[in-house]
């Protein structure tokens, strides 16, 4: 444990923490997207899945217990991820207190890497809204507790909501794309033989998640998913 905490001492260590939490978050986002695909199997399958989330782990865990453990891990991951991000970004601001009159650095590194902070903030905002929308329902005009399928369909039948979801998937994609590549670099997984496939894998991962997620509101609006 002392060693884990001592990671916090250096910028590289903080990055290792960010990457580790990033992996957890990526795992969640990917898994979440795959789970949501159940929506294409109809209301029962989806509701059953949503219910199943609460009962996984039984009988070793009580109803909802494992879900809470996962939630705590996720929350901790997000917390650490954000804390590290904030500290590092502040540091970077201080490291270049005086900027350039002219700076072509932007042309050089990719759009994705440059927008990590903004992307992260948008995702954070999105998640807050998303929880109020589909989990707690306080941002949902027609929320029915226990009927995830209903909430899902009626939620996305609203054009502004769907468009907001679709738009936020774009920064998410960039964050994932650079995040995954960057994570490999942070872990030092730089086997020269693998170098040329790192970018494509990151792009594929981001692409699948973004397309999968965008498909949900689109499907609802197109009437493919409904009653």
């Amino acid at each position: 444990m002392r060693r884990v905490f001592s990671l916090w001492d250096s910028t590289v260590g903080k990055k290792i923490m960010m990457a580790t939490t990033g992996v957890i978050l990526i795992g969640f986002v990917v898994g979440h997207m795959i789970g949501n695909l159940k929506v294409y199997q109809g209301a029962d399958a989806f509701n059953h899945y949503a219910e199943g989330l609460r009962t996984v782990g039984e009988p070793f865990f009580g109803s909802g217990q494992l879900l809470w453990i996962i939630r705590i891990v996720l929350l901790a991951a997000v917390g650490i991820h954000i804390l590290a991000a904030v500290q590092l970004v502040m540091r970077s601001r201080k490291a270049r207190a005086i900027g350039y009159r002219k700076y072509e650095g932007d042309m050089v590194f990719s759009y994705a890497s440059r927008t990590m902070t903004w992307g992260g903030l948008i995702i954070l905002g999105f998640v807050v809204y998303h929880l109020m929308h589909l989990t707690f329902g306080n941002a949902h005009p027609d929320f029915v507790h226990g009927n995830a399928y209903h909430n899902f369909v009626t939620g996305f039948q609203s054009w502004p909501v769907s468009i907001a979801y679709i738009l936020t998937m774009i920064p998410l994609g960039f964050h994932l794309y650079h995040g995954f590549w960057s994570m490999l670099q942070t872990f030092g997984a730089t086997n020269p033989k693998m170098n040329h496939v790192r970018r494509p894998i990151a792009a594929a991962l981001a692409g699948v998640v973004v397309l999968g997620n965008i498909s949900f509101p689109v499907a609802v609006l197109a009437g493919l998913v409904g009653y």
Partner: peptide, 21 residues
């Protein structure tokens, strides 16, 4: 790395602008 940080350099976010320069 400790000295690097103590000197007030920023952290690396894997932008790659350094390699180009």
């Amino acid at each position: 790395v400790t000295m690097h940080d103590d000197e007030g350099f920023g952290h690396c976010t894997n932008h790659g602008a350094c390699q180009t320069a």
